[in-house]
Design a protein around this nucleic acid. Structure first.
Lengths: 207, 207
DNA sequence: TTCGTCCGGTGATTTGGGTCACAGCCCAGG
DNA sequence: CCTGGGCTGTGACCCAAATCACCGGACGAA
């Protein structure tokens, strides 16, 4: 695919450099792209699909932070890349995805030489930082029912579909809760006329 | 005070520029330095004291994210500065503090011209991002007793004192909990021989 | 000294949500 | 067509933490 469409703001020299040095990779839905503790060798730009960034703790709990979409980049991979560190998060393809991997060692020069890259990095930092802030807000101040509504809202926004094709268990995992709790809350939402529940699918009632 | 001691890594030209353009300001303990929704005009570097960065929601709840200390900078103010945005957080001086305010409009040039500034910004992003990640971990995966222990540990680390001079109510506010809960948990810690409780003061037992 | 106010201690009760147990279902593969 | 495994619904129960109610002690201001 023609990746340049996703990054129209990049200047010609930068595009050339990326074309020469970066590697394009495909992932299937469910593939792990980055793992906690793994050493980072590349900065990841998303071309196609949707990538889930989440935290995992030792007892198997996980917790969704945000999604990356085409035109976005993984802030963690940038930060770690520049400082040659290891990842603190997990990244998994939620849909079949295409990404561009830019080797770490190019970062410094790119930052210095290409204004559009520098802008992009700053913008990426800000975007992810803001998303993290809203994550903190949600778990610090909101109850599960509000968190669930936020989750659903974000899901349809990001996936661009009207319905969620996902099991209750999946949602529970993403919210670090349990299936029963999610099922019950969804039932309540159905009674309030907000959604209609099916097997492996939640239909939104727009009204 | 001689602020340069706090930032030995800055190169001479950068120091000169800051000396010429930046404004030094003092805050008393308890002063609000930055407020949610406020427009950001400067990047803040901490010279002395301790600054608390926290989130506030509409119903008066608050939630401590992290502290800034001498030699550190407010990542939010950098991000917003570069993009001319508004603050999403609150900043309050926990002790009497000195800060250096660098006008927004210098940021771009500084990033381009001074490698040491660029390094500093990147390092600041990474540091704050990591702290936010550990905040998320705490509220997502830990119970109140563990969060309290983490809070105390961090407090003594950052304040550099052996004891916490703080009321239970303050702690409860920082953790977005309630005084009674904190009092009870502290009592349990006292019974386990970890601390000794006094009025407005919690003494750590090192053992 | 004496109040009033802030601080801390503690029981009783409530509630959100996690856990357990189990039942009915849809659906894919044999 | 049958069967077994994943999905959903629901009741019973439990636990952490929030809330309510109230008390006594410390400390500062008058």
């Amino acid at each position: 695919m023609n990746w340049k469409e996703q990054f129209p703001q990049f200047e010609p020299g930068l595009i050339e450099l990326i074309e020469k040095e970066a590697v394009q990779r495909s992932f299937n839905a469910g593939d792990i792209i980055m793992r906690t503790g793994q050493y980072i060798k590349s900065t990841v730009l998303v071309l196609e699909g949707r990538i889930k960034i989440y935290r995992e703790n030792q007892d198997g709990g996980e917790f969704l932070m945000y999604y990356l979409q085409p035109g976005q980049a993984c802030a963690v991979s940038m930060i770690c890349a520049i400082q040659s560190g290891t990842s603190e998060i997990m990244a998994m393809a939620e849909e079949d995805s295409e990404v561009l991997m830019i080797p770490v060692h190019l970062m410094d020069d790119m930052m210095n030489q290409y204004k559009s890259w520098y802008q992009f990095v700053i913008q990426t930092y800000r975007g992810r930082f803001d998303e993290l802030l809203s994550v903190v807000d949600n778990i610090a101040f909101r109850n599960m029912d509000e968190r669930l509504e936020f989750y659903i809202k974000r899901y349809v926004e990001k996936a661009g579909k009207k319905n969620l094709e996902i099991s209750h268990q999946q949602i529970a995992d993403d919210l670090n809760s349990s299936r029963e709790v999610i099922s019950r809350l969804l039932k309540k939402m159905e009674q309030r006329g907000l959604v209609k529940l099916h097997r492996n699918m939640i239909e939104l009632i727009s009204s």
